[in-house]
């Protein structure tokens, strides 16, 4: 079942990242992080960017390190890794541009 776990890794990471970013978004709004300036932005955006960026880095690692499998199993592993990466990049890209708590 190792190949199945590997094929599910990308989508599972997306689900974890999506839940984490959504939770962090709610927590930051409740704690007023958007009003605490950090560097060129605010604490809320920084925290969201950091989490999203770390998650994307994890996805890229999954895409770049393919196990030696073959046939449809390899195809599913590749597909799973890319599904995760594209999903995380697309569904969470709003953290880059939108205001957080309006």
């Amino acid at each position: 079942m190792a190949w199945m776990v590997r094929a599910l890794a990308g989508p599972v990471l997306w689900a974890t990242l999506f839940s984490g970013v959504y939770a962090l978004h709610g927590l930051g709004c409740a704690r007023g992080w958007q009003q605490q300036p950090v560097l060129w932005g605010d604490l809320h955006h920084m925290a969201l960017w950091a989490l999203w960026g770390a998650g994307l880095a994890g996805h890229v690692m999954l895409v770049r390190t393919m196990p030696c499998d073959q046939g449809i199993r390899r195809w599913l592993i590749v597909a799973g890794a890319w599904i995760g990466l594209v999903s995380s990049a697309f569904t969470l890209f709003p953290v880059t541009i939108l205001s957080t708590c309006l």
Binding site: V12, W14, G26, A79, I83, L102
Partner: peptide, 27 residues
């Protein structure tokens, strides 16, 4: 595989009008 996972990231689109912040709506 994609449907099984992505379908769990949509539920708030039934709640777009309840007053959730724009960023969360965008997710």
């Amino acid at each position: 595989l994609g449907l099984v996972f992505l379908s769990f990231g949509l539920w708030v689109h039934h709640m777009f009008t309840v007053g959730i912040p724009h960023m969360a709506l965008a997710f």
